[in-house]
Each structure stands twice: as structure tokens, then as C-alpha cells.
């Protein structure tokens, strides 16, 4: 994506070690605030929330010795901008294998920005059942001044104040060459 838009990296805010640490801490906080991994259902939001959720699940398993449930949400069909984005975007599969009723669902995404993705994810989740509780974990929180909906994260890897012209890119080995988080901007802005 960065190449397509001709973006330049302004600064690197996390390397792979820092990301590992942040994810380990997120996993610990999730377990701590829920008093264990019982009834936990970790759900990654496509695309970049998915590998992050997987890593959190692995961390929780190594902390608790018990693997929480794991699922994937594709929010495309719940987007609020389908009538404005032009051609309809590609739909990927939602995989919630287990019943969400009565579970503590932790949504995982890479970046919290406007909050619209999370709104879509929550709406979709509710169509699958009635979780006891829904929480949000993100690797990067860009700050409340960009929020367009009243949505906050319960667990944050790193809070990064940004300008609207900037783009935060979480690079993961599943999709990119490297494992890092950087702030990008279009040249001349």
C-alpha cells in the first residue's frame, strides 16, 4: 500500500522487538483484567488484526497454559461507506467457529483511528449472538481527536498522536517484508 500511494516513512515507532513486547503486555493485561482466560474469545479483524490476534492467543496460552477461543471477522459487508467507495471492495470470509453467547470477546485490530471499523465489527459480532462483554485491543491508538464515533480501546500497545495527513502502517511478516510500525506521509505534506 505504501508503494502504491508513494508514501515516505517519517519515523519508525516500533521495531519487531518492541512489537513483541507490546503484544506480550497486551496479552497479560487481557488475562489480568478478565481474571484468566476462561470464556475469552480473541477475534482478529481482517486484515492486519488477524495475525496480531493469533500472536495474542499464543501469548495467552503460554501465560495461562490454556488456549482461548480464536476467530476472524471480515467487516467489509458492514462498512458504512459502501455507497461512497465506488466499486464494492473484496469480501473475505468471517470465521467465528464457536458460539459467542456468554463469551468475553476481545476484538483485535492493528490501528484505532476513526473508530468506524470497530463499529462495523461490533455490529457484525452482535449478529452472531450476545457476548457477555466486548473489549477492544489495538496495537496502535492514534488518539481520540481523530475519533468519529464514541469508541475507545481497552488495551493499547502504544498511543501515538498523529496528524490527519499521516498514515500509520503496521507491517507484519504475514503481509510485508519486515516487522515494524512506521509513520508515513505523502511527500510534500
Amino acid at each position: 500500500m505504501a508503494d502504491e500511494l508513494n508514501l515516505v516513512e517519517k519515523s519508525r515507532i516500533m521495531d519487531s522487538t518492541a512489537m513483541k513486547r507490546a503484544l506480550r503486555r497486551l496479552a497479560t493485561e487481557i488475562v489480568e483484567s478478565n481474571h484468566g482466560a476462561e470464556d475469552l474469545y480473541i477475534v482478529g479483524i481482517r486484515r492486519r488484526g488477524v495475525p496480531l490476534a493469533e500472536r495474542i492467543v499464543n501469548q495467552i496460552e503460554s501465560i495461562e497454559g490454556h488456549r482461548p477461543l480464536y476467530g476472524i471477522l471480515d467487516i467489509t459487508l458492514y462498512r458504512d461507506d459502501l455507497s461512497t467507495v465506488g466499486a464494492n471492495p473484496i469480501v473475505n470470509r468471517t470465521e467465528l467457529e464457536y458460539d459467542v453467547d456468554g463469551k468475553v470477546v476481545v476484538l483485535v485490530d492493528d490501528v484505532l483511528y476513526t473508530g468506524r471499523t470497530i463499529r462495523a465489527a461490533m455490529d457484525q459480532l452482535m449478529d452472531f449472538g450476545r457476548p457477555r462483554r466486548v473489549q477492544l485491543a489495538v496495537l496502535i491508538d492514534r488518539g481520540t481527536e481523530h475519533r468519529e464515533l464514541p469508541i475507545q480501546a481497552d488495551f493499547v500497545g502504544k498511543k501515538v498522536p498523529t496528524k490527519q495527513t499521516e498514515i500509520i502502517k503496521v507491517m507484519l511478516t504475514e503481509f510485508d517484508d519486515i516487522e515494524a510500525v512506521g509513520i508515513f506521509e505523502k511527500p510534500g505534506e
Binding site: M1, G86, A87, N88, V91, V111, Y113, T114, T117
Partner: peptide, 20 residues
């Protein structure tokens, strides 16, 4: 469902998400 979804989606432009 796929055909209805794709054919009611407006004109083709590149749909890079680019929101973050």
C-alpha cells in the same frame, strides 16, 4: 449474493483502503 453485491457497487475505481 456475490453478483448482486458486485453489480450494485458503482463504477470501478481502485479500492485501496488507505484509511490508517
Amino acid at each position: 449474493m456475490a453478483v448482486l453485491y458486485l453489480s450494485t457497487g458503482g463504477t470501478a475505481i481502485s479500492s485501496s483502503k488507505g484509511e490508517q
